[in-house]
Design a protein around this nucleic acid. Structure first.
Length: 274
DNA sequence: CCCAAGTCCTGGTTGC
DNA sequence: TGCAACCAGGACTTGG
């Protein structure tokens, strides 16, 4: 599942090779993956000729900053893959978008997505409004543990549901939520507003710590994540909680529990996460 | 048939 | 009473 570290890994791969390249052609558009009735012809019309100037990320959203004040948002959803490959291979199954870029060696920016949870949006003048509702980036945002404490204060929602809420901190999904809570020794079921100051400090440290480790290992390929070159990441080997229900806790040896929190499968140690 | 999960949407509840 | 904030749960998707 592409979460912040996976999207950051893709961003770094694209940043190495995209800036300065120019779009020349839209080879494929899946109209139903565009937001609310957007016109697929708009991409074909407005993308060719534009240069890529920068590749940014906020939470799980990627934004290609294009020339003449245009922005191409990419969201990987649950199974999305964004790769930069040779332009002569056949378009693969589940290839939803394909954009041709000029250069001595032409390249194809390809968006594959088996499920259709991902999306692409081209906007002008400013990035997609979907970014406006997001909280600070969970890894690189300007928040502090004091700020986190204020965000948590008074909330009765389970801690895990809070971590998954992109309006509070942006970028944490189901895998890293379980890993962060395991590392911070906090129960996913705890009411978010009930943490002590010491616990908030621990939580803040593990949010940044686990996400940074995910980035260092180039993402988590538990199912089908690959980077911009098509290579899997390594964080799946570092998982301590996610998907390990029934297995012994690496800290205390008791079997990990399973619960459903915020509609998501949740693995945690009922003995040493409190 | 159920499960996986990111985001959006709806409807109910709470508190000022 | 009115309204916003908050929270829970469903819809969407397709392969295992």
């Amino acid at each position: 599942m592409p979460e912040l570290p996976e999207v950051e890994t893709v961003r770094r791969g694209l940043l190495e090779r995209l800036p300065g390249r120019r779009f020349v052609e839209v080879e494929r558009v899946e109209p139903f993956m565009l937001p609310g009735g957007a016109e697929p012809g708009l991409l074909r019309e407005a993308l060719p000729g534009r240069l890529v100037e920068d590749v940014r990320r906020h939470g799980k959203f990627l934004t290609l900053v294009l020339s003449d004040d245009a922005y191409l948002m990419l969201h990987l959803g649950m199974t999305g893959q964004v790769t930069l490959t040779s332009s002569d291979a056949a378009l693969p199954k589940h290839g939803r978008f394909a954009f041709l870029l000029e250069g001595e060696q032409p390249r194809r920016l390809l968006f594959r997505d088996m499920r259709k949870f991902g999306g692409v949006e081209l906007t002008f003048g400013r990035p997609t409004r979907r970014l406006e509702g997001l909280g600070p980036d969970a890894l690189e945002g300007e928040w502090t543990h004091d700020g986190l404490g204020r965000m948590l204060a008074g909330r009765t929602t389970p801690l895990k549901a809070f971590l998954l809420d992109q309006r509070r901190l942006a970028g944490i999904g189901n895998i890293y939520a379980d890993e962060i809570l395991w590392a911070a020794q906090l129960s996913p079921l705890r009411p978010a507003g009930g943490l002590s100051e010491e616990e908030v400090v621990r939580l803040a440290a593990e949010i940044r710590g686990r996400l940074a480790e995910g980035v260092r290992l180039r993402g988590c390929s538990i199912s089908d994540f690959v980077d911009a070159e098509g290579r899997p990441g390594g964080f799946q080997q570092a998982l301590q909680a996610y998907g390990r229900q029934g297995e012994p806790c690496a800290r205390c040896g008791r079997p990990l529990n399973r619960a459903v929190v915020a509609g998501r499968g949740t693995a945690y140690c009922a003995a040493c996460q409190s």
